[in-house]
Design a binder for these strands. Structure first.
Length: 600
RNA sequence: GCGCCCGUAGCUCAGCUGGAUAGAGCAUCAGGCUUCGAACCUGAGGGUCGGGCGUUCGAAUCGCUCCGGGCGCACCA
């Protein structure tokens, strides 16, 4: 990559001037300071000189092609000459392609994400795991890793006992196919009427009544036990519940544009549990705890709560299944890293599971990472599937789309395919918001914020892209076509292929400060993508795309592209910059699962 | 009680492997459409970075401590 070469050249020049010193380079906060910065503090201290003086000395001493060196207080800044900055960036984006990507290097990364529970509906809470996981999978693929996307479906456990017990109590006799509304339940809105939703109603009712009658808990446990023992009726119902859930999940995944390489839920590990427990036993760490439970003590690694492997009644628990899954994944994938994109409330659980796996097999040490995220609360309190106060993801996506449609009707009533564009923008709003504030901190859901369309939002970035495409269309020739991917995009694609384009013969027209700032922000994209991989967060990428879009908007208002008084050279170079920007934006959004519209 | 996370502008948040005047958006105020899309651009005001102590040439960033909020702490996932 051209920018990487520049960085290396600068580093080597510094190393030559400062033998034996550790050279750390930074990216200045603003492009007018320069393209690369060398803070002199540390080296100056080691050499017993003043950092400002050192910067000044280095500025006169070092000579770089295509760049000037400036001492700015204690910093030595390297600033490319404008035409050099332009030619490097345009070469990256128009000629080399897959800007900021890395060639395949064989590292295998597993990403476990989404993992919804069967028979619990897909809520806004599931969006975070799903889209963070999708973005991590995409970014790692872009950076040359071999990625396996794993959906660890919650299709096993005592909750199924709950569902089976509830079904037997209130549905089997009068509504066995769950195809009619329950008399005792609140009326369901038309668009949600489905067997799955009625299953959800059963679940909510069971938990409500269980509060008053704790003995029902035993009923649920007994049903799970029957399920685990292979009882035919329990299995039949479980299979059915699972099917109707998966069909709904698939509809949502299709809408979100995410996909998986494996959908092995917890039930998949059912026949691997005993060998997993055997492996733990073989490591001589399994002990009997209270009530006959089988546990692993973890005080020696700083975890006070032991990890339970088998309950007192001999049935498995989710830790058992996660340990079994870890062992299975080692033998199946021989992975280098495995990321678990699961809520922060499960931090202790994963510490325990990782610790157990590490004790069973040292191979696991350092390969497992829990990527936690905060929960989404409602203004009136926590969301709870059991209590039924949840926000459904599909409702959020529908609402966002509706709000976009209203704006389209007002601002662009002639827009073709308005419905499809509204879907793209609504999705952009919801997903970008999610990525922007990808934090461990919990957030309070409000409609206003979740589907905001102004300011630092997905639609702002999408708008920049649409304006560029509009300019490229007006430019005629092949310009617009060059801004489009050369293949149809789906979730199997990480690096978008674009046609290779020759550099403009002249770079006249790009010396303006706004154009140069746009080039500077484009230069920041590779670091942002690497940050996604390093931090397991999409925040840096979302912020960089905003910076690029802002820089473009400013360039657009300051530097006319197609005005008749522009020379051909100015026009061509500015079009090339537009094209490069469109590609960068589309690629960056795509990694986050967001589409870039050509019109809006 | 113990452990982990969070506390930055009126609001929502970036920045946290220590480094250049602490940055955005929303909201408020003031400007900008007879030429490429105003879902935009330009500018202004607004901050004891929860409090204190410490380490350092330098702390929003590291350590200790206190305050405030959240999550978790073996038979749910």
């Amino acid at each position: 990559m051209v920018m990487e070469r520049l960085k290396e050249a600068f580093r080597m020049a510094l190393a030559k001037a400062l033998p034996g010193q550790d050279i750390v380079l930074e990216r200045p906060r603003s492009g007018d300071m320069g393209d690369l910065a060398f803070p002199c503090f540390r080296v100056a201290k080691a050499m017993g000189t003043n950092p400002a003086q050192l910067a000044k000395d280095l500025a006169t001493q070092i000579v770089m092609d295509d760049a000037e060196l400036l001492a700015a207080g204690p910093y030595l800044n390297l600033r490319l000459r404008p035409e050099a900055r332009a030619s490097r960036m345009l070469e990256n984006l128009l000629v080399t392609g897959a800007y900021g990507s890395a060639p395949a290097h064989g590292e295998t990364v597993l990403v476990e994400y989404s993992s919804p529970n069967i028979a619990k509906l897909f809520t806004i809470g599931h969006l975070r795991s799903t889209m963070i996981g999708h973005t991590l999978a995409q970014a790692n693929r872009y950076l040359g890793c071999k990625v396996q996307r794993l959906n660890h479906l919650g299709d096993w456990g005592t909750q199924f006992g709950t569902l089976l017990a509830a079904y037997k109590r209130w549905a089997e006799a009068e509504n066995p196919l769950l195809d009619q509304d329950f008399e005792w339940a609140e009326e369901i809105p038309e668009k949600r009427r489905s067997p799955l939703f009625r299953l959800f109603q059963l679940y909510v009712r069971f938990h409500a009544e269980e509060e008053k009658e704790p003995a029902m808990r035993d009923e649920a446990r007994a049903w799970f036990r029957r399920l685990e023992e292979g009882d035919a009726e329990a299995r039949r119902l479980w299979t059915w519940f699972r099917e109707i859930s998966l069909a709904t999940f698939q509809r949502i995944y299709d809408r979100l544009g995410v996909g998986f390489d494996a959908m092995n839920g917890e039930a998949f590990y059912e026949d691997k549990l005993s060998s997993a427990v055997e492996a733990v036993k073989a490591a001589k760490i399994l002990e009997e705890g209270e009530g006959g439970a089988q546990i692993v003590r973890l005080e020696d690694v700083g975890i006070q709560t032991p990890c339970m492997m088998l309950k007192g009644d001999g049935t498995s628990i989710y830790a058992t299944r996660d340990v079994a899954a870890g062992l299975y994944r080692k033998s199946t994938y021989n992975f280098d890293r495995c990321l678990y994109v699961v809520g922060a409330e499960q931090i202790l659980h994963f510490q325990q599971v990782f610790a157990v796996l590490g004790k069973v097999d040292a191979w696991f040490q350092g390969r497992l990472t829990h990527t936690p995220f905060g929960m989404i609360n409602l203004p009136e309190g926590k969301m709870s599937t059991r209590k039924g106060n949840v926000i459904f993801l599909e409702d959020v996506l529908d609402e966002a789309k509706e709000r976009v449609l209203a704006i389209i009707r007002e601002k662009n009533p002639e827009l073709p395919q308005a419905d499809e564009v509204a879907e793209t923008l609504g999705m952009g709003a919801v997903l970008f918001f999610n990525a922007l504030n990808d934090r461990v901190k919990s957030i309070t859901f409000t409609w206003e914020r979740a589907v905001a369309l102004d300011g630092d939002t997905g639609p702002y970035v999408q708008y920049a892209h649409a304006r560029i495409m509009s300019v490229l269309r007006k430019a005629g020739g092949d310009w617009a076509q060059r801004g489009r991917p050369t293949v149809a995009l789906d979730h199997e694609v990480a690096a978008i292929p674009f046609e290779t384009v020759a550099l403009p013969t002249s770079l006249e027209g790009l010396e303006d400060a706004a154009a140069q700032n746009l080039l500077f922000e484009l230069a920041g994209l590779p670091d942002a993508i690497r940050a996604v991989q390093r931090e397991n967060m999409a925040t840096a990428l979302a912020r960089q795309l905003l910076a690029i879009a802002k820089a473009f908007s400013s360039f657009y208002t300051n530097c006319p592209i197609l005005w008749p008084e522009n020379s051909d050279a100015v026009r061509e170079s500015r079009l090339a910059l537009c094209l490069a920007t469109a590609r960068a934006l589309r690629q960056g959004l795509w990694l986050m699962g967001i589409k870039a519209p050509e019109e809006m």
